[in-house]
Design a protein around this nucleic acid. Structure first.
Length: 595
RNA sequence: GGGGGUGUAGCUCAGUUGGUUAGAGCGAUCGCCUGUCACGCGAUAGGUCGAGGGUUCGAGUCCCUUCACUCCCGCCA
């Protein structure tokens, strides 16, 4: 590299360059002005080089007045630093550049937020001035990491014989799933395209087209409300699909890819090199969620049966159990000496979450087993023995109990599991704990409408021989449907697909879709499946979440270059925005007047 | 749509029980300083205390409404 802007970048110069004349360009990261001597830290994408100038130089006065973040080119000679002034924090710290001449390439107004600072800033300012924010060290490195992760993954996929294809961004709206982003069609007045929520149908069509193994770093668009780990609007998936495969074949490819990627880009250990497999049912019982954080050793146990015993006098729970509630508990090991406040705080916290609180007691043993704590007196020695058998609890352990209907109890025990583990400091933050969640039910019952719905992906293949499936009890049908979860983050979900049209019609009819509707809404798919479709399956790991875990960030916007805010607005580009009447007219759209 | 948190100088924040002229650090401007690397020292400018209303002799502080940001619930095949 040698042009009118630079001979070297800001992370290149070392001892061996001493006495060479160099030309550097970059941003003024920091100035230290000693009046007659001025230090300038010049920064570019690659690093920082200290440059120095003194009063003798005619440029001194102008350079002294130059704002931080001004872009300059600096001409000078590389010189040695004396031993005491070596800066071991930066890789160019053994040398500095003695400035002969400099030129301003891009001026800078007063900064709305400092670039050189580790401080945290309000997100709206960061998003409005994202180009400045992105100069800051941590996020700059996150974005570079993201680029490297993506090219690593792409390379791995290519090595494994996957072909990368693009699929349409303007496609049709589908009835299942999240809200669509719609795009009006000018040439077809009154009709709309939808942005794809995922290239789901296309990747299946690619298999039907005989391409065998496909992948894509695919943008996906869903009009959902945001969360810390969910950008509003758009996100990226490593979308992949394979023909003539069983669930195991997909697992093999993806597990290896995940292990390689996480080993390549993080120093954290993998808790399991072989990902444990947990059925959906087991996950919901033991962890209360289908995205359990397995760094957390606590598990949930069902002890409903205890409350049917005569020698248990805990009447509130007993009454609830009689009316269909269930009781689940979390055992904490050896917590008998924890202060009262530990227990009270967790109970209080549970109430803040909208639950009716968490009952608790600690198991003790002098002559006989007893329970200490506000509700301890309700349990006979024998019943406690039974609880210990059911839960594996021992003397000195404590139990936190919740009683309510299934959905609620799953929610509160799942949250409590994390809360208690946090309070007890049980999380190992230096590991990644992956697992597969498998055997998802094909259908579930909507609690309010009582209707049978697809619980996940309507295109999944049900488990078992087709002629032996019992469609009369659809809630018992499991699917070849699976998720990867890491540290409590849902990283991907996938399935072996249903490639048999008759079976698809059947499943859709259970979910209340007539054949006509299926033919209409999924015309491309259903049509294709009747012209010789291979058995196939795939998965789609979320790129943003993978990078978020690797960068050790809690928020997905920290690994997204230009994210929108929680209200799905781009504060930098001013999107969404008004459009002209002419544009609306062309699209055959008229707006209801705003209230 | 609902719940929690936050909102004071360009930025990050402090501000007591409601009490005189609302403070600090960074940044900006000016001055001093030849070995710093978060350089140091001194001075100056910079405020609709998110907005509106109310209580009060008096509101950054209490009450009501509202807006913005954020976290969570709903939502996310």
């Amino acid at each position: 590299m040698n042009n009118k802007y630079r001979t070297h970048n800001c992370n290149e110069l070392r001892k061996e360059h001493v006495n060479t004349d160099v030309l550097l360009s970059g941003w003024i990261n920091k100035k230290r002005d000693h009046g007659n001597l001025l230090f300038i830290d010049l920064r570019d994408n690659y690093g920082i080089t200290q440059c120095i100038i003194d009063k003798e130089n005619l440029n001194f006065i102008q350079l002294e007045k130059t704002q931080l973040e001004t872009v300059v080119s600096i001409e000078g000679k590389v010189i040695n630093r004396s031993k005491e002034t070596i800066n071991s924090e930066i890789s160019t710290g053994e040398i500095e550049v003695s400035i002969k001449n400099f030129k301003i390439l891009g001026t800078c107004k007063e900064l709305p937020l400092p670039v050189f600072s580790d401080q945290e800033y309000a997100e709206d300012i960061r998003l409005k001035y994202r180009f400045l924010d992105l100069r800051r060290k941590k996020i700059h490195e996150n974005i570079i990491l993201r680029s490297k992760v993506i090219s690593f993954i792409r390379n791995e996929m290519n090595k494994n014989g996957f072909l990368e294809f693009q699929t349409p961004i303007l496609t049709s709206s589908s009835p299942e799933g999240a809200r669509d982003f719609l795009v009006p069609s000018r040439l077809n007045p009154g009709k709309f395209y939808a942005l794809p929520q995922a290239p789901q149908q296309f990747k299946q069509l690619i298999m039907v087209s005989g391409f065998d193994k496909y992948f894509q770093i695919a943008p996906c668009f869903r009009d959902e409300d945001a969360r810390a780990d969910r950008s509003p609007g758009e996100f990226y998936q490593l979308d992949l699909e394979m023909s003539f495969v069983e669930q195991e074949d997909v697992f093999k490819v993806v597990e290896k890819l995940m292990v390689n990627t996480f080993k390549e880009f993080s120093d954290k250990k993998l808790l399991f090199d072989k990902f444990p497999r947990i059925s959906y049912k087991e996950a919901m019982l033991k962890y209360g969620t289908d995205k359990p954080d397995l760094r957390n050793p606590l598990v949930i146990n069902d002890i409903t049966e205890i409350f049917l015993r005569e020698d248990v006098k805990f009447d509130i729970f007993k009454k609830l159990v009689k009316s269909g509630s269930i009781v689940r508990c979390i055992v904490t090991k050896n917590t008998k000496d924890k202060p009262r406040s530990f227990f009270v705080n967790i109970d209080k916290w549970a109430k803040e979450q909208g639950a009716s609180g968490l009952a608790y007691f600690t198991i003790e043993k002098d002559e006989i087993i007893s329970a200490k704590g506000p509700v301890g007196k309700f349990f006979s020695s024998e019943s406690l023995g039974e609880i210990m058998k059911l839960t594996g609890a021992e003397k000195g352990d404590s139990l936190f109990l919740a009683c309510s209907k299934q959905k609620e109890i799953e929610k509160i025990t799942s949250q409590a599991r994390n809360k208690i583990a946090e309070d007890l400091n049980l999380f190992d933050n230096n590991v990644f704990a992956f697992c597969w969640i498998v055997d998802y039910p094909m259908f579930e019952k909507d609690e309010t409408t009582n209707k049978i719905e697809f619980s996940h992906n309507p295109f999944s293949m049900p488990q078992g021989e087709i002629d032996q499936l019992n469609f009369d009890e659809p809630l018992n049908i499991l699917a070849y449907q699976y998720d990867i979860v890491c540290n409590g983050v849902e990283l991907s979900s996938g399935a072996i697909r249903n490639h048999i049209p008759e079976l698809m019609y059947k499943l859709f009819s259970i979910a209340g879709y007539e054949k006509k509707v299926v033919d209409n809404k999924f015309s491309g798919m259903i049509n294709a499946l009747s012209f010789g479709a291979p058995p196939h399956g795939g998965i789609a790991p979320g790129i943003d979440r993978i990078v978020m875990l690797l960068a050790d960030e809690k928020n997905i916007r920290e690994v997204t270059m230009f994210p929108m805010n929680q209200n799905a607005q781009d504060l930098m580009m001013n999107a969404p925005s008004d459009v002209s009447d002419k544009q609306l007219k062309e699209l055959n759209i008229s707006l209801k007047s705003k209230k």
